[in-house]
Design a protein around this nucleic acid. Structure first.
Length: 499
RNA sequence: GUCGCGUUCGUCUAGGGGUCUAGGACACCGCCCUUUCACGGCGGUAACACGGGUUCAAAUCCCGUACGCGAUACCA
């Protein structure tokens, strides 16, 4: 039987990093096995689900290049089937009507309220003590026909255990006494999560359920539903969670946009790099190779090599340089400087476009110049954003001067204010404005003034690029051309706000 | 509370009885290269949560403790 897996997010927000990784693992597994990777939007919570969220999920998957097979399944469209399944179980006596009035939902933190309730009823709680569990069929139907509202609960056996062999966490067992008679259908007829998931997974013929560890205990409930429905159970693989620094939960409320996949796209990450980084969170190829492209990831992936312990996504909200995980940033830089130039160019183009720095000539008369520029500056950049910020002087006459560059390379020597225009005059006389000739001119200039070449070169760098760092100055000068270089060297603007 | 799961450098991880004076990567520090900064090269700091046991031998197996996480809903 061929492998069929699914990614089943609920559209109640943006695509969370943990969810994105779950999607990735499902995708890798499906592709490796020659199976299908399906997408199901679990939008049964009508109050929280939004189309915008669905769009953001789709955008995220598209960005990571995780193409799904077949049609998207919207869980809400299957509600009738879910209801039918619950009714079937009711008719078969495997479920029962619970006429207990629906409890008011507690205010504030729901999780805390649940835990508190559980603590309070500790010791006296018998999962089978529902008075409606053994109501006679006649009475149950009678009350239902009289219009009394009821929920449908699964009738969990008095004695027994559920068990499954998780591909990641190993053998899992749970005693029936620890599983309540879970609600299948709300009193308003709305099917609940565990029922919906099982029904849909059966219908979609899912063979392997790969999802977050937060569903590990849900799985026992779902197994009970599979059994009641007399359906074949899929294999389960639960993924360790991705946590925030300090081992806390990575949440939108506390950590903000850092947990959203689209943040990384918008921050100038290369999809392949982020995908690579994500793959290494909780999974290891067991080799020392870390930079892996998609085919390599597909070939190396295995459920068995997924870790059981949660991984921490490291970042420091108070440090702009460490706004996200160091390793993710490093990996992105690694991709930027080593990926084939032709693959990088369109990404840089998109970035320049969004920064309003793009010029059509870059794909026409100036194409060679553009390509060389990108190649010249890419090795020092961490994200695509750097092309329009640090690299701005290459694409526009209107660029800012980095304060460090000015302080360190320009203002420390008062003479430079005079020397820079003089250097421009000197360069004006260079016939062949190439690397060697420029270097010679600058060297001669430095010597004539009795200073090191470095002093002049670095001052010129600040004048010409606004930056303290960059490629070889002579390379940059010859690349930018005599006209732009001399003009910038004659500008007195960088000196005007000194002190 | 109960149940489940976890715990190797700051972080991602390798290692699953002897080859571990615990390997790699990021980050950090130093040196080399260099007009700057990166890259690259070389080197360094840095970890088996704790306590018992089993064994000739434990990071590795067992038990306990601590801590963390998850679940415990007419949410998904």
């Amino acid at each position: 039987m061929s492998i069929r897996v699914r990614f089943a997010p609920s559209p109640t927000g943006y695509l969370h990093l943990g969810a994105a990784r779950a999607a990735l693992f499902n995708y890798l597994y499906a592709r490796q096995k020659g199976g299908k990777f399906l997408l199901r939007i679990e939008d049964t919570d009508l109050e929280r689900s939004t189309d915008e969220s669905t769009r953001s999920i789709l955008d995220g998957l598209k960005w990571l290049e995780l193409e799904y097979d077949e049609q998207i399944v919207f869980q809400s469209e299957n509600a009738d089937k879910h209801r039918a399944a619950a009714l079937k179980l009711l008719n078969e006596g495997k479920a029962y009507r619970d006429f207990t009035p629906k409890a008011e939902r507690a205010e504030g933190n729901i999780k805390d309220a649940i835990a508190e309730k559980a603590r309070a009823s500790q010791g006296e709680k018998n999962m089978r003590d529902n008075p409606f569990r053994d109501l006679s069929r006649e009475e149950s139907e009678g009350r239902a026909e009289a219009g009394e509202p009821f929920a449908i609960r699964l009738k969990v056996g008095e004695r027994g255990t559920t068990s499954f062999d998780d591909a990641v966490f190993g053998l899992q067992e749970r005693d029936y006494s620890e599983i309540e008679d879970l609600v299948l259908l709300r009193s308003d007829g709305h099917p609940l999560y565990n029922l919906a998931v099982v029904c849909d997974d059966i219908e979609m013929q899912i063979t392997d359920v790969i999802r977050g560890q937060d569903h590990l205990t849900n799985t026992h409930k779902q197994i009970l539903i599979y059994d009641a429905l007399v359906a074949t159970k899929p294999r389960f693989a639960h993924l360790p969670l991705i946590l925030a620094p300090g081992g806390k939960k990575l949440s939108k409320r506390i950590h903000g946009e850092i947990v959203s996949l689209t943040t990384y796209r918008d921050a100038g990450f290369i999809a392949a790099a982020f995908r690579n980084f994500l793959a290494l969170m909780g999974w290891s190829p067991k080799t020392e190779q870390e930079i892996m492209n998609l085919p390599e990831l597909i070939a190396a992936f295995s459920l068995e090599n997924i870790n059981r312990s949660s991984a921490i996504f490291n970042f420091d909200a108070n440090n702009p340089k460490r706004w996200t995980d160091d390793k993710a940033l490093w990996m992105n830089a690694e991709y930027i400087r080593t990926m084939p130039l032709e693959e990088l160019l369109p990404l840089v183009k998109a970035e320049l476009k969004s920064a309003k720095l793009w010029r059509e000539e870059y794909e026409d008369d100036d194409q060679a110049w553009f390509e060389k520029t990108v190649d010249l500056i890419r090795s020092r950049f961490f994200t695509l954003k750097d092309f329009s910020s640090q690299g701005r002087a290459f694409f526009s006459e209107d660029f800012d001067f980095d304060e460090t560059a000015l302080k360190k390379n320009l203002w420390k020597e008062p003479q430079l204010k005079m020397w820079m225009p003089e250097l421009a005059d000197k360069l004006e006389t260079v016939e062949q404005f190439d690397h060697d000739e420029v270097q010679q001119a600058v060297s001669e200039f430095a010597e004539a003034n009795g200073v090191k070449v470095g002093l002049i070169a670095n001052a010129a760098r600040a004048m010409i690029t606004g930056q303290a760092v960059g490629a070889s100055m002579f390379e940059i000068m010859s690349h930018l051309g005599k006209e732009r270089v001399t003009k910038r060297l004659r500008s007195q603007i960088p000196f005007s706000f000194a002190g």
